[in-house]
Amino acid sequence: MGLRIYAVLYLIFLYAPIALLPIFAFNDGTIIAFPLRGFTTEWFRQLTEIPALHGAVLNSLIIAVSSAVIATLLGICAARAATRFVFPGKKGIMGLIMLPLVLPEIIVAVSLLVVLLQLGLPLGAWTVVLGHVLICVPFSVAILNSAFQSLDVSLEEAAIDLGETRWSSFRLITLPLVMPGIISSLLISFTISLDEFIIAFFLTGTDPTLPVYLWGQLRFPQKIPVVMALGTLLVLASVILLAVAEYVRRRGAARTGQRDTGGLM
């Protein structure tokens, strides 16, 4: 019982900051503190009137979609190789691919920055994508590994035995069965890229991403309520994306009769 109370308190601790977001987003006061001053939707209205913000959102969306697609494609290759094949140097290769999971993001950011600057390449959205793909791939591999792992090797062999080629059996059998994992990977990678700050901060050049734009706004106290409104929308978007990812994963598991085991990671 004590443990249960503790777990609930811990959940409150986890959710406390996010719970404050909508409270201040609708609070009719420029100072972010209690007591509250009354209800307003003014901050949300202001969001629609900031062209710089809209540019940042668009920039972030382009980067997040590109990163998610590339990371998932690379993740499919790595996860299938890791779960299905034995090849020389497997441990080291997979280790390197998964390394960004534990590497501080600032290290990834500065090392990429150094190389890009030395090569004289211009910074921009595409350099952010390069970095984001790097940190999204480990998550993609982790998700897809479990998708590929729960797949019986005999399934593809059975398709080949029934006349299909290697590729068509992959397309007809493996792909549909790992599709929930692929969708999860796309959504999670999209979310990571959309929220990522440090790498974007170092590599973005002149067009800021949404978090970089936000970072700039945090310095101006009078802009904080608008940031709160924006944050509310962002959290909402993340939660929706995650809920969709989780739903797809569970439906996929139910459809193929697998036991539902654990969450997104």
Partner: peptide, 29 residues
């Protein structure tokens, strides 16, 4: 699965904003 999902959700929301909110929680006012 539901519990794990609940535990992971906050992690996926904007890091920047979460940190800023701690400033709001812990701040002078």
């Amino acid at each position: 699965a539901m519990w794990i999902f609940l535990i992971t959700i906050p992690f996926w929301t904007s890091y920047l904003i979460r940190v800023f909110l701690w400033k709001v929680i812990l701040g002078f006012n």
